[in-house]
């Protein structure tokens, strides 16, 4: 049972870290376009890139 002394604060800490991660992801614009990436992956480009220069 004593392990709870460690586990409960740990769970609170992890929740806090997840919260900060999410806040950072949101601020970074990760959730601005929720549709595009799903489509973009289907338009995979098979042709090798042409070097234009």
């Amino acid at each position: 049972m004593e392990s709870l002394y460690l586990l409960i604060p740990l769970s609170v800490l992890i929740a806090g870290i997840i919260g900060v991660l999410f806040w950072w992801a949101g601020r970074d614009g990760q959730f601005d376009d929720l549709e595009g990436p799903g489509h973009r992956i289907l338009h995979d480009d098979d042709t090798p890139p042409q070097d234009p220069s």
Binding site: D33, L34, E35, G36, H39, R40, L42, H43, D45, S53
Partner: peptide, 25 residues
């Protein structure tokens, strides 16, 4: 979605363009 793809390719092909991304919505 194909329009987005087309525009991204077309802009990305230009020499000197470093990055391009188009928001679907």
């Amino acid at each position: 979605a194909a329009c987005i793809w087309l525009n991204e390719r077309q802009i990305g092909r230009l020499p000197g363009v470093l990055a391009v991304s188009i928001n679907y919505t």
